[in-house]
Simulated assay, not measured.
Amino acid sequence: MMPGLRTLWLLAAALLLAAAPAWAHKPSDSYLTLDVREAGVDGQWDIALRDLDMAIGLDQDGNGELTWSEVRARHDAIAAYALARLKLASGGAPCPLRVTEQLLDNHSDGTYAVLRLHADCGGAVSALEVDYRLLFDIDPQHKGLLQLRHAGQVSTAIFAPDSARQSLQVADASGWRQFGDYVRHGVWHIWIGFDHILFLLSLLLPAVLVYRDQRWEGRTTFRAAAIDVLKIVTAFTLAHSITLTLATLGVVALPSRLVESAIAASVALAALNNVWPLFHGRRALVAFAFGLIHGFGFASVLLDLGLPKAALLLSLVGFNVGVELGQLAIVLLFLPLAYLVRNTVLYRRGVLGLGSCVIVLVALAWLVERGMDVKLLA
């Protein structure tokens, strides 16, 4: 295979990897709060109903809609499934968990079962050992987001298949440790935030080209392409950092459905511009304008995770740094490959043209789903 064609295949594969999950279920999170009190632990565990339905089956009539009676009928099964996948211990001795109450609550991405928990550790707790295994066997992208509270202090942890067992000091509210946790979560979120990735890619695809005389031509230097990418990424970063901060601090709030619908529309418009250039020379301005909306999307994730008051600024900055590192990894993968194949017909018509059309269709499906609360993509 010729070097240029091999590079094109690598670029196409990278784009497919980014776009393919658009049809998959959104990677899930659960939200666990544990409050250490004397010799016991009180807690609350929010688990998405869609995840529980996938794991143990809640939709008894198979009509694709869950009712309160269907969920209530499976309370015992929900409790048994959850408790089998969460173990607490203190000083090497187990802290038996039980569910004291089950409720429902709405999060930004749907309805969650709320399990109120209690554990008796039989003595003072200085370090809590947590073994978290929820959904890892059926969804390896699942994350468990923990807030650990003790004597007015809050610390956080993120559980994944490679970090399912963690020992947490109940008085460890180290800001820098939490900074690192939020950096990792920011990187993870941008990598699973397929709408954010497709928006960024839609703006980056023409960066190695110039629209001249009604046609796309390859840029003459890598430096020119890199400068164009730098302008776009900087504008997007600045914009979403502004609204991420304002929304997280509670200064500005927008309805979740409006934000998610606007993000889908931004993806469609950015990709459509690659087929019918309307604002080719102003893509950085577009990145800034729509980046303000994407910042509200990032904020919804951060608000669901929860920010420890003792390390509010560090955690907020850490999450944003993680998002930027995730973006940087995408750019470093994309730009050299795209520049090498920029002059090929396959890049201009295949990757840019056809790829952008596919992104438009996916984004329009998202827009209908989010605006009308229906399911089009499996």
Rank of each mutant, 00 (worst) to 15 (best):
G43K: 09
Q44L: 15
W45E: 09
D46G: 06
D46T: 08
D46K: 15
I47P: 07
A48P: 11
L49Y: 04
L49N: 07
L49H: 08
L49G: 03
D51Q: 13
D51E: 15
L52R: 13
L52E: 15
L52C: 15
L52A: 12
L52K: 13
D53M: 15
D53Q: 14
D53F: 14
I56K: 13
I56M: 12
L58E: 07
L58P: 07
Q60M: 06
D61Y: 06
G62R: 14
G62V: 07
N63H: 08
L66D: 07
W68Y: 05
W68M: 04
S69D: 15
S69R: 12
V71C: 03
R72E: 14
A73Q: 05
A73S: 10
D76Q: 12
D76G: 11
D76N: 03
A77R: 04
A77E: 06
A77Q: 05
A79I: 00
A80L: 03
A80W: 04
Y81Q: 08
Y81F: 13
Y81N: 08
R85A: 10
L86Q: 03
K87F: 11
L88S: 07
A89W: 01
A89H: 02
S90Y: 07
S90V: 10
G91W: 05
G91Q: 07
G92T: 03
G92K: 08
A93H: 14
P94W: 03
P96A: 10
P96R: 01
L97Q: 02
L97M: 02
R98I: 05
R98V: 10
V99T: 12
V99N: 13
T100D: 05
T100P: 02
T100I: 05
E101N: 12
E101S: 12
L103Y: 11
L103T: 13
L104R: 05
D105P: 00
D105G: 13
D105N: 11
D105Y: 03
N106L: 09
N106C: 00
H107K: 15
D109T: 07
G110N: 09
G110I: 07
G110S: 09
T111V: 14
Y112P: 00
A113Y: 00
R116N: 09
R116P: 02
L117I: 02
H118C: 00
A119V: 11
A119I: 12
A119T: 13
A119P: 11
D120S: 15
D120T: 10
D120P: 04
G122S: 07
G122M: 05
A124L: 04
A127K: 06
L128N: 05
V130C: 01
D131H: 06
L135M: 12
F136L: 03
D137V: 02
I138Y: 01
D139E: 12
D139C: 02
P140F: 09
